[in-house]
Computed example of a mutant assay.
Amino acid sequence: MIPLRRIVTISCAGLLLASCGIDGGDSAAGDAETDRQSETLALAISYPRQADAAGFARAALATSLGKSGDFSVLEATDLDHKGPGNPMARLVWRIHRNKIDSGWKHTPAFDACYSVEFNYDGVSSGPSRIICPESATAITPPPLPRRDIPSDFAPALETTLGALPATPGEEDVRAALATGLPTPPVAPETGLAGIPPQIFVQVKGSDVGVALFARIGVGDEDCMLGHRVGGAVKVWSLNWRDLGPRETPCSAETALAAP
């Protein structure tokens, strides 16, 4: 069992945060611009929801600021929490500012560090300026494979449904889908192959309904439906509005019943 508190990484090799200098205070470096950048970043990575601290770190590093050479994540920590309103993850990040030495302005280089905590709904505290931990190194959480349904699944599903025998059994449909649907591609940026969607099938006589379902995030789903009803083939996708808790389920029954 994974413990409730799992530290993805911690600066200063296991020392308490206070002993590492992460205690805030007037001496913490930063300015109005790094404050603005941190506030914008914290808001940006609050949604889509993340499952853990590593997810928030990945989201931060995927932003324009995160991809720059001036930004680094120093800590991503999962926090003990009892409910969705309690803080579940803490990030500490650093923004580097080069010195400015012009005829009218002289500003020394500095590193501004911030601590921010997130709960299920987004930011629960911070971003707050803190003293940068000494000897802290940037971390990069391991990448995750893509879980969405690629666009080339739609024409493949349509072709597969159209080529089924007149009165197929469920196993016939599943076998046809196993060979007819494409393999999710390998993402060049991570080198990881995508996760194929779940497949649901329902057959009634000569009519067939198929649902492809993928859970791509904590609260995000991807759904593609297809049917052959009365000999006519149709393939379509459901968006996040369609997939609300009181809306349309991603199921083979939904596909078969659709007009």
Results as ranks from 00 to 15, higher is better:
125 S>I: 02
125 S>G: 12
154 A>D: 13
84 P>W: 01
187 A>N: 15
101 D>C: 03
108 P>C: 07
127 P>F: 11
163 A>K: 13
143 P>W: 13
199 I>Q: 12
172 D>F: 01
71 F>Y: 10
107 T>N: 10
88 M>C: 02
115 S>Q: 13
80 D>L: 11
142 P>G: 13
94 R>M: 07
125 S>A: 15
189 E>A: 14
133 P>M: 09
81 H>I: 00
97 R>P: 05
154 A>M: 13
116 V>N: 05
73 V>Y: 03
131 I>A: 08
124 S>T: 10
111 D>G: 02
109 A>Y: 00
155 P>F: 04
68 S>D: 03
140 T>K: 09
66 G>F: 06
179 T>I: 08
146 R>A: 15
194 G>L: 06
128 S>N: 14
144 L>C: 09
186 V>M: 06
108 P>M: 04
67 K>R: 15
122 G>W: 09
103 G>E: 10
70 D>G: 04
156 A>P: 00
173 V>T: 08
148 D>L: 08
79 L>H: 09
194 G>S: 10
99 K>N: 12
97 R>C: 07
106 H>L: 11
200 F>C: 04
90 R>W: 02
116 V>C: 03
91 L>G: 10
89 A>T: 09
114 Y>A: 02
135 S>G: 11
144 L>D: 04
75 E>F: 04
158 E>C: 10
153 F>H: 05
80 D>H: 12
198 Q>I: 01
138 A>M: 09
185 P>W: 11
140 T>V: 14
171 E>Q: 14
157 L>I: 11
186 V>D: 09
157 L>Q: 05
75 E>L: 09
177 L>Q: 08
78 D>E: 14
179 T>H: 12
100 I>C: 01
69 G>K: 12
85 G>E: 15
123 V>P: 00
143 P>K: 10
134 E>N: 12
173 V>S: 07
118 F>W: 08
151 S>N: 08
140 T>S: 14
108 P>N: 13
100 I>Q: 05
118 F>P: 06
86 N>A: 14
152 D>N: 15
77 T>D: 05
75 E>P: 02
171 E>D: 15
144 L>G: 02
90 R>A: 08
169 G>N: 13
91 L>K: 02
133 P>I: 04
192 L>V: 14
97 R>A: 07
137 T>R: 14
164 L>C: 07
114 Y>R: 03
113 C>N: 00
186 V>Q: 04
118 F>A: 01
169 G>H: 11
140 T>P: 00
131 I>K: 08
115 S>P: 02
149 I>S: 06
123 V>I: 10
186 V>G: 00
145 P>L: 11
71 F>L: 10
148 D>E: 15
97 R>V: 08
156 A>I: 06
119 N>L: 06
188 P>I: 14
122 G>P: 06
81 H>A: 04
96 H>W: 11
178 A>H: 05
90 R>D: 02
155 P>D: 01
105 K>L: 15
155 P>Y: 01
128 S>K: 09
93 W>M: 08
92 V>A: 09
176 A>T: 01
151 S>Y: 10
100 I>A: 04
190 T>S: 15
97 R>S: 11
112 A>P: 02
